[in-house]
Design a protein around this nucleic acid. Structure first.
Lengths: 227, 227
DNA sequence: TGCAATGTTGACTGACCAGTCAATCTATTT
DNA sequence: AAATAGATTGACTGGTCAGTCAACATTGCA
């Protein structure tokens, strides 16, 4: 399965018909999201994707080097956007609580906006050791590390207590979010605009509540990170 | 893939050679854990399991109805033990923090004792919507609900604040644990006896810290659950 | 000793499906 | 209008693998 990864890095043809071509490519990607979400990556056939997109079987291979590459593309496309968001938040001047709140909001809104895509990313990539998770491990790790950096800074400022290692705290934070999405994906938690908003509050309340230092410690600024 | 689920519910032959037969069965199960952990359920062949166990291909089908049934068995075997532990803890008289601590300890110790098995359960079942996760959803849900019950009780006692719904809190708690295991599985977090112990503290600190009510609210006992 | 009954073997089959490719179509350029 | 290049089609192939089965082995009992 994971043998034939990629081969034609580009995917999208250049000039000329590029507009129409890009549209077809997107059509296939969107169809793939639906099919992967409905049947799972392993259980679906490439022909299911083609059928869902209303194109011929071979066209999938015109735009993508392999079935794997379709999923890779979907994952990277979304994860890069998320990494960018986290980097921006990290660089900004907000207090930790709001930084983490912004990240939680982004991920939960991603789910609200396209639950199928997030389902596919979580189910087929983020948790899939031995297959896609392993392939993209460095990309995934980067998110954890950026969150860890935010926690670290809060610890340096004395807002978060130091007893809990930043790495651990970052995993905890991300874990809570992903588990909430998992709850929605498996239909274990009710969904809806209200629920999503409340979930955002839960993430921040729960995790930050447990990480914050007693008010006294707000002294000792410690050494901030160079940048 | 998920078509031929079960057919011979028993699996273990009865009397007579039952001792030796049970051993062979276990031999196959243990081999399957290693193979599933190493290659993943989808990527491995039944012959890999047979080879790893040092038995003939056909013997796997003597003890199990299908490849799926092997994984089902591994999952259920472990999950039932966990459910029992949670039920005991729930019924006991400990304060919430210790109840949740005991659950976190159990899961983390399960990983320490048999990381391959926990890897398989998390990667192939717990997060696998559309395949095994879907099949076992009710069994999985039960764990979340039992944890929710513990949180609920703490809220009734005024130890945990009521703003965060028990269901959410339970998911958050479990999510933190599973994400830590995921960190170890993907080699994103260092492992070792010390790390595991610290992780237990992190889970309880982080989540309970965020859920506990300010000391004042310890009044209003509210209505306890009937039992 | 002989006869069930269960344990064990591995070659074989039938279905399935990712990926290929030669042919056809469409648009753009000159 | 002819030429070129990319877009689109879908039948076909080659390999893979879950599951079957008929034969052989071992065990316990009568």
């Amino acid at each position: 399965m994971s043998a034939t990864r990629s081969s034609r890095g580009n995917g999208a043809p250049r000039e000329r018909n590029s507009k129409a071509a890009a549209d077809k490519r997107r059509l296939i990607l969107d169809a793939a999201v639906r099919v992967f979400a409905r049947q799972g990556f392993h259980a679906c056939r490439v022909s299911d994707i083609a059928d869902e997109a209303g194109v011929a079987y071979g066209l999938v291979y015109h735009y993508f080097g392999s079935k794997d590459e379709v999923l890779d593309t979907l994952f990277l496309e979304r994860w890069q956007v998320m990494l960018e968001l986290i980097r921006e938040v990290d660089a900004g001047p907000l207090p930790v609580r709001e930084k983490l709140g912004a990240i939680a909001s982004f991920i939960i809104d991603s789910y609200r906006h396209d639950p199928d895509l997030m389902k596919v990313i979580i189910v087929e990539v983020t948790r899939a050791a031995n297959s896609f998770g392993d392939t993209h491990i460095d990309t995934i790790r980067e998110a954890y590390e950026l969150i860890g950096k935010i926690v670290q800074q809060a610890q340096d400022e004395g807002v978060f207590k130091r007893e809990i290692e930043a790495r651990f705290a970052a995993m905890a934070f991300y874990g809570v979010i992903e588990q909430l999405l998992t709850g929605w994906i498996f239909d274990l938690l009710p969904q809806g605009a209200d629920e999503f908003e409340r979930a955002k509050a839960v993430v921040v309340e729960t995790v930050c509540g447990g990480l914050e230092a007693p008010v006294s410690d707000r002294t000792t600024p410690g050494n901030r990170l160079p940048q």
